[in-house]
């Protein structure tokens, strides 16, 4: 009775601190949205003069990127980005998912409490360190294995492999979170029916956590596409339309880094082309994020 009286008394009372928190949170959300809008607006504004001179069709289909002779084909840069991202995902997806299954389903709690933070340390190392690691450690190993005449000093394979290691803890951690959030009752039901641990993992837990796992995959892919320092250091410079991972090729992000660090006159077509590449990257990552949201909604399971 006393409690009811107390809450009734508070009902009409003004709470300035609550209102301040409300306005602060609204302000923070607005700033973050406006920042994104501002970045996209700047990209569009600077890319517009480029697309006024170079058609989107030409931009997407020309086979060479040589601004000196007015050839602005994104394909060589896009292909290099694709090659490094695919190599990275070939490492990160299976290993990340398998380690997530181990941590979630097999590892004893004590071991999980040690291994998970250790793996997450990988995600905290600056990507420039990974870039040097690719250049100074992985590339010599690849040259030793495949021959230095076949593997260039700068190559997309070493960049992709190391990028896979970079993305690995991200995917592992996100997948582990998704797997751990599956209710225990589902596992126990399967065990009660005589399923082995593997069968429970593959037929019950992974399908139930599919939305989180697919989101982790897409976020990892977005990270791979947008990763800059590793490819700038290890994949090489100069656009090269090749699918050979032993050859040097420049990715979109690597090209932006290299060109924007040099002498580039403001408002030239070269300068605007960087924003066109940035806009293209933005469209790719936005599409991947939209796909991720769609997959999460499509496969999301709600448990009571």
């Amino acid at each position: 009775m006393t409690n009811i009286q107390y809450s009734t008394d508070l009902a009409g009372k003004r709470r300035p601190a609550e209102a301040m928190i409300h306005y602060f949170l609204f302000f923070a959300a607005t700033v973050s949205i406006l920042t994104t809008v501002g970045i996209v607006g700047t990209l569009g504004k600077e890319a517009f003069p480029f697309f006024a001179k170079v058609s989107i069709w030409e931009f997407l289909t020309t086979l060479h990127w040589q601004p000196q002779i007015d050839e602005f084909g994104i394909l060589p840069l896009f292909t290099a980005t694709l090659v490094t991202s695919v190599i990275a995902m070939c490492i990160a997806l299976p290993v990340g998912l398998a380690s997530a299954v181990y941590l979630s389903e097999y590892a004893p709690p004590k071991l999980r409490n040690i291994l998970k933070p250790v793996l997450e340390v990988l995600a905290g190392i600056p990507s420039v360190v990974y870039g040097f690691f690719a250049l100074q450690t992985v590339t010599p190993i690849l040259q030793g294995v495949f021959g230095s005449d076949k593997v260039d000093i700068y190559n997309t394979l070493s960049a992709g492999l190391v990028m896979g290691v970079l993305i690995l803890p991200l995917i592992s951690s996100m997948c582990e979170d998704a797997l751990s959030s599956v209710p225990k009752a589902l596992r126990e039901g399967a065990y009660a029916l005589g399923a082995t641990k593997l069968e429970v993992s593959l037929t019950i837990v992974i399908p139930a956590a599919l939305s989180g796992i697919s989101a982790a995959f897409i976020v990892g892919l977005s990270r791979a596409v947008g990763e800059t320092m590793i490819v700038a250091l290890a994949a090489g410079s100069g656009s090269n339309l090749t699918l050979n991972p032993f050859k040097s090729a420049e990715t979109m992000t690597g090209h932006i880094v290299r060109i924007s660090g040099g002498d580039l006159s403001y408002d030239s077509i070269d300068y605007n082309s960087l924003f066109a590449i940035g806009l293209f990257l933005f469209v790719i990552t936005l599409s991947l994020n939209a796909l991720s949201s769609h997959l999460v909604r499509k496969y999301q399971e709600v448990y009571e």
Binding site: Y102, L119, L198
Partner: peptide, 25 residues
């Protein structure tokens, strides 16, 4: 059960691989 234990080894190996990558780096 043998399939389950083989896969458990693979899952554990993946985790060890990830930790070894960190150690090498």
């Amino acid at each position: 059960h043998s399939r389950s234990s083989i896969m458990a080894t693979i899952f554990f190996g993946s985790t060890v691989f990830a930790v070894l990558c960190l150690a090498t780096l």
